[in-house]
């Protein structure tokens, strides 16, 4: 009862937090992984773990839930959560981990360090991390998470049990969204939920964000409101950029691209996805010929790959824009 009262005065904050699963059982769509992790909890011991998988499929959620169940009542004191993207570099990793691991676990069998987005760490930092992992095996376990395990150096991979998280399946997302809708008393129909699932592409975080955004806009959430939210959330001007480049106006297209990326802060990955979607839409509407379309797709795909290899995504996208020029001349 007391607990309930406290709940009442809580704010209605971000739903991605409010409805973040609190236990391993609540985690959606990673059944294989969860059942193996629960075995660790039962045994009261775990090796170093690595969670890999795309965004929004439950890596962080699972790590926190696992820590809670593994460490018990005093999990907060014995759990360190670090984000490698924000604190990348050797020093941060060393200092934070060292000072945390030096102390023995109190109230829990051992301590857990959760290091998120390890693939954003430099190779040097990863090597340093490897040494730390070895040094504190007796007192601490590591959970590392990353999008691409290929970006993690082999010595780290070989020291971890690797768990691959898959995109959350459509029906599972539907189930979860329906649960939230009921708890929030939303007026939403199934076709709207299905359309969220379509746009979420297996990313639960995006699905929940779309739902909350739609709920904040309309009393009644329909398929249209979902489309509205998704198109509002898209980086703007991509269509313009593509069209300007296709018209042969490279300088304007490039300037607009820079504006969107530098000023609005759209990421390279987002940009390339949007350009891809715009081009495929144009192909569907027959506004570009198939042979041109496939050439563009080839270039876009290559750019997508290079963005991850290169140092400056914007430079790669500027290079991509030049590929749009000749295709109009061929017309």
């Amino acid at each position: 009862m007391a607990h309930n009262m406290k709940m009442v005065i809580l704010l209605n904050g971000p739903w991605v937090e409010k409805y973040r699963p609190k236990t391993l059982d609540e985690v959606v769509g990673q059944d294989h992984t969860i059942s193996r992790l629960k075995r660790y909890v039962k045994e009261g011991n775990m090796p170093n773990l690595m969670f890999t998988g795309p965004a929004g499929v439950g890596k962080t959620t699972t790590a926190i839930a696992l820590a809670k169940e593994m460490l018990g009542e005093y999990w907060r004191q014995n759990f360190l959560e670090l984000n490698a993207s924000d604190a990348r570099g050797i020093d941060t990793v060393r200092n934070d981990i060292k000072s945390f691991c030096r102390l023995k676990a109190v109230g829990s069998p051992f301590r857990i360090i959760f290091l998120d987005e390890v693939d954003n760490m430099t190779k040097d930092a990863q090597h340093a991390l490897r040494r730390e992992m070895e040094m504190y095996t007796k007192t601490s376990s590591f959970i590392l998470s990353c999008n691409y395990s290929s970006k993690i150096i082999d010595p780290i991979q070989s020291r971890c049990a690797i768990f691959r998280f898959t995109p959350v399946k459509g029906h599972q997302i539907i189930h979860r969204l329906e649960y939230i809708a009921e708890a929030e008393n939303l007026n939403i129909n199934i076709s709207a939920i299905e359309s969220i699932v379509y746009f979420a592409e297996g990313d639960m975080r995006r699905a929940v964000n779309i739902l909350q955004a739609s709920a904040s806009m309309d009393e009644e959430i329909t398929e249209e409101s979902i489309h509205d939210v998704v198109s509002k959330a898209k980086p703007k001007d991509v269509k313009k950029i593509v069209n300007k480049a296709l018209d042969g106006d490279f300088l304007s297209a490039r300037e607009l691209l820079r504006e969107v990326m530098v000023v609005q802060g759209t990421s390279g990955e987002d940009m390339v996805t949007q350009i891809y979607q715009e081009v495929s839409r144009m192909a569907l509407e027959d506004s570009i010929r198939e042979n041109i379309y496939i050439k563009l797709i080839e270039s876009i795909g290559e750019t997508d790959y290079r963005i991850r290899e290169g140092s400056n995504p914007r430079i790669q996208l500027e290079a991509l824009l030049t590929k749009f020029l000749i295709n109009t001349k061929a017309d």
């Binding site: 926190i64 964000n209 987002d270």
Partner: peptide, 17 residues
């Protein structure tokens, strides 16, 4: 949100709404 700045920024468009 237990997320990096990068991941948070990706959610900005929804927050804007």
């Amino acid at each position: 949100l237990h997320s990096s700045k990068k991941v948070v920024k990706e959610q900005f468009p929804y927050m804007e709404i």
